[in-house]
Amino acid sequence: MPEIIYKKPHSLSDKPFHYCPGCSHGLVHRLVTEVIDELGIADNTIAVAPVGCAVTADEYFRVDTVQAAHGRAPAVATGIKRALPDRVVFTYQGDGDLAAIGTAETVHSAARGENITIIFINNTIYGMTGRWRQPLCRVRSRRPRPTDATRTRRAIRCIFAKCSRRSTARLISRAQPLTACRI
């Protein structure tokens, strides 16, 4: 009997991704939902979507989702987690959302030790609005290069390193207040 050893995670919807070619959002969505499946927490998880390319994350994550205002996802997640402490609450944020407009919410949710997980996707630009730079943009780069293959591969390696099965399980089950995956 053939055995299925690789398949689309159940927590990932069938909707085709709207993300640009070369963007790693689709890959990270897969990793996140894979981990949700492995831990068997889809029924107990609430996602908080950002403003930015992943604003419609609810269309891909098959878990209850709350869409936050720009940068406010950690505050929204704080409210959810304080209301329902036995749920797994995570935010999914880009760099403009997390590291520019939402710096205060990010830093203070970590400082308070909120039991939430922040998944940070840094592509060094505001993707939706036409590649505006953001604070984590490399100083010497002439312009952002969001589709640079080398960087994307490095990013994927980085995410895999951070989100290998064991460490991701730890990441979600221990619910560290802030986990930044620098891409």
Binding site: A68, R72, V76, G79, R82
Partner: peptide
């Protein structure tokens, strides 16, 4: 919860209210 700003406080209300 004493939030870091009024902005954070109202967004915490948004989250808690969304959670029911």
């Amino acid at each position: 919860l004493q939030a870091e700003s009024e902005i954070a406080a109202i967004n915490m209300v948004y989250g808690a209210a969304a959670a029911g």
